[in-house]
Amino acid sequence: MTITIKSLSREEYLLPGNASCPGCPASLGLRLLGKALGKNMILVVPASCTSIIQGPYPKTSIKLPLINVIFASSAATASGIAAALEILGKKGVHVVCWSGDGGTVDIGLQALSGAAERGDNILYICYDNEAYMNTGIQRSGSTPYGAWTTTTVLGKRRHKKNLPMMMVVHDVPYVATASIGYPLDFIEKIRKAARYKGFKYIHLLAPCPVGWRFPPSKTIEIGRLAVLTGMWPLYEVERGKFRLTGVSRSLLDKSKRSPIVEYIKIQGRFSHISEEEIRILEEYVDKLWEDIRKIIS
């Protein structure tokens, strides 16, 4: 069922006057999460930009029950909340981890993997801005090859860790990728995930104007380009069944994909990148899709 904009609630769960930077994909993501699930959720937030976005005590910009937790612990904390809700008989409440890429693919990975393996009843959303943005743009395991960060000033030498696929092999009922460039697709995936009992994972690409060095007006556009160039395939894996979604459905054919330079050239973090490095990134994208082809066939 396709979601229309008009069908979305006007209720806001991320209140304006929060501390996000202009054009922030994390704050938009939070807004959309509220539109997707409404009030029936408890949020778990590890150290990340969202720790700041909320604003300081005694106020908060998020109108949902929320617990801030230490960096490596979001999935485990969520497991505990889910267990408590179950035994206390509180039904219909979703427990949602809202973690950045550092808190997911790096320091939070052990807890994430543990919760997934146990099949705990939580929805884990990684908003991936591809570096430690809250501490000032340091490289993470999710930073792409070639990208400048303050700890890879000449560009990162390794590719991005493929976390969604890693979650797929955990054999959980629902894994999906999403991009902030396609909000309705993201909302649909959240709602779909929430219908499953057990561990659900959504990896949201979240282009960060500050860290990626682009004007804040371009957040959505870059989120779209990531998908159109094939850098970030949109898919979902329901009970092990892989399916490309949205515009990504037509991108198995390389000729349908936009050249990745269209994505790269408008980001300052790639401003120094050489022809050779672009070729390496192109090969990475080709391999990404080759792997998808193998999964599908």
């Binding site: 485990a76 505990g80 909340i81 267990a83």
Partner: peptide, 24 residues
Amino acid sequence: AKYIRVESEHSAMAAIIGASAAGA
């Protein structure tokens, strides 16, 4: 009771923090 067989002590404490914060 719900018994969570966590993958580390860090997560053991994290899990019961979550559960306790939810009223358990």
